[in-house]
Computed example of a mutant assay.
Amino acid sequence: MLGKLFKFLFILAVMGFIGLVGFAYIAPKLGIDFAPDTQEIRLPVTLQGQ
């Protein structure tokens, strides 16, 4: 009984991984973009001289 549960959970994890990888490859073709919004950030830095 416990062996069947572990086998089911393993198969479920493998199918989930395959689905996640498949979605990562197919999503850009569907118009879904995973890239974050970029913006430039400038911060002044004061260094102590000699």
Rank of each mutant, 00 (worst) to 15 (best):
F10K: 07
F6Q: 01
P28I: 02
A13P: 00
L20Y: 13
F17E: 01
E40N: 07
P44E: 13
F6L: 07
P28V: 05
F34N: 09
Q39A: 09
F17N: 04
G16D: 09
Q50T: 06
R42N: 14
L47M: 08
K4M: 13
F8M: 15
F10C: 03
Y25C: 00
V45N: 01
F6K: 02
E40Y: 05
G49F: 06
L20C: 08
P28L: 00
Q48L: 11
F23V: 08
I26Y: 07
D33V: 10
P44Y: 06
L9D: 01
L20N: 08
I18N: 00
F34L: 08
V14L: 11
P44A: 09
L43A: 14
K4V: 03
P28Q: 02
L2G: 15
V14K: 02
L47K: 10
G16I: 11
G19M: 05
I41G: 01
V45L: 14
K4Q: 12
F8D: 06
V14W: 04
R42Y: 14
G22S: 04
I11L: 09
L30S: 04
F10E: 07
T46G: 05
E40P: 00
L2S: 06
A24D: 05
P44Q: 12
P44T: 04
F23N: 06
E40L: 14
Y25I: 06
D33K: 09
G3Y: 09
G22K: 02
A27I: 02
P28D: 03
Q48D: 06
G31W: 03
K7L: 14
I41R: 06
F23M: 06
K7E: 06
L9Q: 03
M1H: 09
I41D: 01
M15H: 03
F34W: 09
Y25A: 03
T46W: 15
G31R: 08
F17A: 08
V45G: 01
T46F: 14
A35H: 13
L47N: 12
K4C: 12
F23S: 10
F23Q: 05
L30Y: 10
Q39T: 14
I32L: 05
Q50G: 06
F34T: 06
I32M: 02
R42L: 13
V21N: 03
L9F: 04
F17W: 11
I26T: 03
T38I: 03
G31H: 10
I18Q: 01
T46C: 11
G19Y: 00
A35Q: 10
G19H: 04
P44V: 03
Q39W: 12
M1R: 10
A27R: 08
Y25P: 00
V14R: 03
V14M: 15
I32P: 03
G31N: 08
F34D: 05
R42K: 14
L47Q: 10
G22W: 02
F6S: 01
M15K: 07
L5P: 00
L43E: 15
G3N: 13
L20D: 07
T38R: 12
A35S: 12
I41C: 01
A13L: 15
T38M: 09
D33P: 00
K29W: 05
M15P: 00
I32D: 01
G3C: 04
F8Q: 12
D37N: 13
I41N: 02
A27M: 10
P44W: 04
F23G: 01
G49C: 06
G22I: 08
F10I: 07
G19V: 07
L12G: 09
D37P: 08
Q48T: 12
I18V: 07
L12M: 14
M1T: 08
I32W: 04
Q50W: 00
L5K: 13
D37L: 11
